[in-house]
Amino acid sequence: MKAAHRHALVVALLWVALTIIGEILLIRYNPFPVAAAEEAEVIDHAFRVLMHMAVPVFAFVVVVLLYVALRFRARGGVAGDGPPIYTHGAGVAAWFLATSALTIAITVYPGITDLLELRRREAQPPEVLVRVEGMRWAWQVTYPQYGVTTLEEMVLPVGKRVRFEVTSRDTDVVHAFWVPAFRVKIDAVPGLVTYTTAVPTKVGSFHENSAFRIQCAEMCGLRHAYMVMPVRVVPEEEFKAWLALQRQRR
């Protein structure tokens, strides 16, 4: 067996081993904050698939780097030159085939498939409509179906499809509507109404978990960091009661 082939075989074995270890560790690792909407599950799925696909790539480069650094280091002063290899037709072809195939694969799955999954959900008729207006430096949410407007907190019923229509006043600046627990984000742009949807799946509130918040994610000036509105996801009866209370208080 030629030395070059032996090196390649050792690297391949190390690569497989490191990949298996990496994948096993990854299965046991949860990198996410609370996922409290159907959309969060889709996005976390895409994230997880990409991580699993990244493991062999990461393992390959790390194994090769460590192997060459330890095994091909010239020892004891200046050694001679390496072998005069300009290129390797089959190796290069295999590299481009593999990287192209991987690129196409991740673009299609989870990229396009999960995006279409989000679109499919978005296209379903919403049950609750929430108009969100960003202003420096606060959020105003309006429930046009119920005639309620508030600057204090966004309350949503669990299990209902909510459509957020997001904007910013013509005289204001660009903000971004982001609820980390739902994983959804869309800019609030002056002169434009943007939208996104979410189906909350877990009851929860800002006071228990900061992922339940509307956080401005686009730099908007002085109090950008504090442009936060608490989010509370509640059972439907509680939502109705909250709406009634809001109407009373007006």
Binding site: V64, V68, G82, G91
Partner: peptide
């Protein structure tokens, strides 16, 4: 770039 870099290092006599 990785192809060329790793390909050059492979089987080389690396001066560290």
């Amino acid at each position: 770039v990785f192809l060329a870099g790793l390909g050059t290092l492979w089987l080389g006599h690396l001066r560290m």
